[in-house]
């Protein structure tokens, strides 16, 4: 999907072209939808124009990019390494794939839900709006089909009824949903990444439970996020930290929101697959340019190698990801098999 950003950039670049002799390079890219806001940000457009780049952006689910014909694009920018590696293979891209920024997956919770989880040993809270989800305890509860009404302290909250579960996206098509399975399978597999048939068999019953309990699943993390924001949907949703962070940088301070960092989670490594020389130089710029890295933070992303977090939103977000174990992500073939089995 083309964004207005591309058009705006062309205008800005044109104006600049009057007093600068350098030619502007137009870079066509297909990106995960969660980065659309970043590339549409007028400051990003301007920063790119100042470096003589115009971008034309279309969005796609990270795993759905393999269905696209990318031959007319300069780069693909999925939200995770596994699909990027697969695309690089297909288009014979050599060399390391730049990973300009990353974002851990977190659980957004309504306050009463977070407090009930904490009171029942499934979570701990650091502040009113921030805490830790204890994955092993949560997965035990899921295994036992634990319901909210079986937990202590839910009586006053009529909406906390039914099985306790986290709502994610369809893991067959959407990256965040696949990474939910990656994190859960790592814990369920005894703290080891699943690499083959044994691990798939061992984790399958639990993963199927985590998925089927949700019923129909949304196809993008934005939809899950919007449902939560509009007050509909499940009180626990699996989203990118960047989605929460960009909500907070907009100046919102939702009272009824607690960000739970799973004690074992997965990082979404936004990984560039350069398909042309122009794509490759833009990828380098995204990874190294201070201004572009600073602007990435505005959209909730953590630039690779930067120590800083989100100083203006410490009540909700962790500055450093200490105490959060990063589970490695299985290969894309394993992850796909996992998703297929879970949704059978």
């Amino acid at each position: 999907m083309l964004l207005t950003g591309g058009v705006a950039a062309a205008v800005v670049a044109g104006q600049r072209g009057e007093d600068a002799n350098t030619a502007t390079t137009t870079v066509r890219m297909v990106i995960g939808s969660e980065k659309a806001g970043y590339f549409a940000d007028p400051d990003v457009v301007e920063a790119l124009a100042a470096r003589n780049y115009t971008v034309e952006v279309e969005t796609s689910g990270s795993w759905a990019m393999r269905e696209l014909d990318l031959t007319t694009y300069d780069l693909a920018f999925p939200s995770s390494q596994a699909p990027a590696v697969e695309l690089a293979d297909r288009y014979k891209v050599r060399g390391p794939l730049p990973r300009p920024f990353y974002s851990p997956l977190v659980v957004m919770a309504h306050r009463n839900a977070a407090e009930v989880l904490a009171a029942n040993g499934l979570a701990t809270l650091d502040t009113e709006h921030r805490g830790t989800l204890k994955m092993a305890a949560y997965l035990d509860a899921a295994r036992a089909d634990r319901t909210w009404q079986q937990l202590a302290g839910t009586a006053p909250y009529g909406e906390l009824r039914g099985t306790v579960f986290v709502t994610g996206t369809n893991p067959e098509t959407s990256n965040s949903g696949a990474l939910y399975l990656a994190a859960a399978s790592y814990v369920a597999n005894g703290g080891r990444v699943v690499t083959g048939e044994d691990g798939l068999d061992r984790t399958e019953p639990l993963l199927r439970k985590l998925v089927t309990v949700q019923g129909a699943q949304q196809s993008s993390s934005d939809a899950v996020f919007r449902d939560f924001v509009s007050g509909a949907g499940n009180p626990l949703v699996w989203v990118y930290e960047s989605q929460v962070a960009s909500l907070l940088t907009d100046g919102q301070r939702p009272d009824d929101l607690v960000v739970l960092y799973p004690d074992t989670t997965v990082n979404s490594d936004h990984t560039v697959v350069p398909l042309t020389d122009a794509g490759e130089s833009l990828a380098g710029l995204l990874a190294t340019d201070e201004e572009l890295r600073r602007l990435a933070v505005r959209h909730g992303f953590r630039p690779q190698g930067a120590a800083t977090g989100f100083p203006s939103a410490t009540a909700y977000l962790k500055q450093e990801l200490t105490g959060v174990r990063q589970a490695p992500v299985p290969t894309s073939a394993i992850l796909r098999e996992m998703a297929l089995r879970a949704r059978e």
């Binding site: 009529g158 039914g162 309990v213 019923g215 129909a216 509009s230 919102q252 949704r343």
Partner: peptide, 23 residues
């Protein structure tokens, strides 16, 4: 669906359980 806009007057904002749609 944007956090900066509250629902119109008369739309009760107390929460309800969201029933899952069949999968």
């Amino acid at each position: 669906v944007v956090p900066s806009v509250p629902p119109a007057a008369g739309l009760d904002t107390t929460r309800r359980r969201e029933l899952p749609f069949p999968g």
